[in-house]
């Protein structure tokens, strides 16, 4: 069991076995955080944590559990409490994606998207608040999406789940500000991760063409914005949504 380290900030990044979460975890590990990585499965989480520690020379730990299950989220936070006693930084990133035209998405898929993206973010924030209150200059970043701000055909349900994340961010920023807890969101555009694997060459080219900065984003682009929002440089910033989308939202 890791011993709490008073000199490093303790950060939990949900959904950090790969993709954006993994890049955020690595970035935070490089900048003096002890990072708790997370995914649904203990083995995958432990593997990612070991790899991030090896890549960065930082300290990592893991918890695991399905964020759609409030009992699993409580158990995760209990573990964080037992091992670290607090959270200084929290990144609510775990999420899934599905696209389908309205009228074509199976109700199970609709429910699952809401359970993971919208309810999962809510369970995570609710369960973490008490740990954040024990942190130093605590800050939260929620990972929404350009779809939550702008929407697109075929993305109605996913967009709704990500708009819910923005509502959660804004209300939480107001409620938790007086307790010294900052809450912001990032809204990534099209980022090259496994989530984009369904995009064919044509769709990829169209997306790049629609993006003022002329490329797809990288997980590192999102990690840089999240790390900034969690840092002391952002100490007077709360309730904001930072697009990391190459201008796609414009």
């Amino acid at each position: 069991m890791p011993t709490p380290s008073p000199d490093r900030r303790v950060a939990l990044v949900t959904g950090s076995t790969l993709g954006i979460g993994r890049a955020v975890a690595a970035r935070l590990a490089r900048t003096g955080h002890e990072v708790v990585l997370h995914g649904r499965d203990q083995e995958r989480s432990a593997k990612a944590a070991a790899e991030v520690a090896a890549e960065t020379g930082g300290r990592t730990d893991t918890v695991h559990g399905d964020v759609a299950d409030p009992a699993a989220v409580s158990a995760m936070m209990r573990e964080v409490h037992r091992r670290h006693g607090r959270l200084d930084a929290l990144v609510i990133n775990a999420g899934g994606h599905a696209a389908s035209l309205l009228g074509m998405m199976h109700s199970d898929v609709v429910s699952r998207l809401f359970h993971v993206n919208a309810l999962g973010a809510t369970h995570t924030l609710q369960a973490a608040v008490k740990l954040l209150r024990r942190g130093t200059d605590p800050a939260v970043v929620l990972v929404s999406s350009v779809m939550g701000r702008k929407g697109a055909p075929g993305q109605a349900v996913y967009s709704a789940t990500k708009a819910a994340v923005l509502g959660l961010t804004l209300a939480a920023a107001k409620e938790l500000g007086p307790q010294g807890i900052r809450v912001n969101a990032v809204a990534p555009g099209y980022i090259q991760t496994d989530m984009l694997s369904t995009l064919d060459d044509r769709a990829r080219a169209d997306t790049v063409a629609a993006t003022p900065l002329g490329r797809l984003g990288t997980a590192g682009d999102v990690a840089a914005a999240a790390a900034f929002l969690l840092s002391a440089d952002a100490c007077f910033i709360t309730g904001q949504v930072i697009g990391v989308d190459g201008g796609l939202v414009l």
């Binding site: 409030p70 409580s74 936070m77 409490h81 369960a127």
Partner: peptide, 15 residues
């Protein structure tokens, strides 16, 4: 609840 958590070193769930 926070004071109970501190005093007894436990973590109390939302529910």
């Amino acid at each position: 609840v926070a004071a109970m958590e501190d005093e007894f070193d436990i973590m109390i769930d939302t529910d």
